[in-house]
Structures are given as structure tokens and as C-alpha cells.
């Protein structure tokens, strides 16, 4: 788990640093060269910021559903295990236990659905898209 986390942190750092370096590069260039080159450089910066925005929101959407489903899956697994164990001890309670298990699983499923909702919002109806695209 620590390995994955450290890889993710390193990835995010590289992303942030690359943006800074790119911006500094553009600034240096635009100071040095003429006004015609300045528009080219600023369009480069725009393309870079757009691609960074869309790439990061796609990454965020994927991570949201992936990490969200881990918790719901673990919870459902432990719920089914508990129900099956107690069903094995006391088979007379079988039907009551199945109904309660499904109730609990529905509530856990709603948590996974919230993660899915965030993924859909990031993919199809991104609220910050208007700021970037102007």
C-alpha cells in the first residue's frame, strides 16, 4: 500500500513540477523574443493547461471509482461472511438474515454509486470546464 501511495505522490509531484518548468520556460522565452513569438508561446501555454486539466480530470475520475469501489467491496465481503457464518450456526434464521444482509448491501452499494456519480461528473459534466475553455 505504501509503495502505491509513494508512486502516486511522485507522479503528482512530477506533474506539478513539469507544469512549473514549462511555465518558466515560456516566461523566459517570451521575455527574450519579439511580440509575434509571444502569442505563439501563450497559445502553447493554453494548450498545455488545457491538456493538463483534461488529463488530470480523467485521472481523477478513474481514481474516484477505483478507490471508491475498494471500500464497498471489502464491506460487502465482510457482510456476506458474517451472514453466512451465522446462517451456518443457526439455519432457522436463514431468510431473515438474507433480507438484512441485502439491506446492508444496498446501503453499501449507494456509497459505491456516489463514487460512480463523481466519476460521471468529472467525465461528462465537469463544473470547472467553463473556466478553462472560457
Amino acid at each position: 500500500m505504501f509503495k502505491v501511495f509513494s508512486v502516486l505522490v511522485a507522479f503528482a509531484l512530477v506533474m506539478l513540477e513539469s507544469a512549473k518548468v514549462f511555465a518558466a520556460n515560456i516566461a523566459g522565452n517570451s521575455l527574450a523574443v519579439s511580440a509575434a513569438a509571444h502569442t505563439v508561446a501563450s497559445s502553447h501555454a493554453e494548450i498545455m493547461s488545457k491538456s493538463l486539466f483534461f488529463g488530470l480530470s480523467a485521472l481523477g475520475g478513474g481514481l474516484a471509482i477505483g478507490l471508491g469501489v475498494i471500500g464497498a467491496g471489502v464491506g460487502m465481503g465482510s457482510a456476506v461472511r458474517g451472514a453466512l457464518e451465522s446462517m451456518g450456526r443457526n439455519p432457522a434464521m436463514e431468510k431473515k438474515l438474507i433480507v438484512w444482509m441485502i439491506t446492508g448491501m444496498a446501503i453499501m452499494e449507494s456509497l459505491a454509486l456516489y463514487a460512480l456519480l463523481i466519476t460521471f461528473i468529472l467525465f461528462y459534466a465537469n463544473p470547472f470546464k467553463a473556466i478553462i475553455l472560457k
Binding site: 441485502i102 444496498a106 449507494s110 454509486l113
Partner: peptide, 10 residues
């Protein structure tokens, strides 16, 4: 009825 509760919340 119980299995449709999860969707209902959201």
C-alpha cells in the same frame, strides 16, 4: 424491495 434502496438514496 430492499435491493432497490441503494439506488433510491442517490
Amino acid at each position: 424491495r430492499m435491493s432497490s434502496l441503494g439506488l433510491n438514496v442517490i
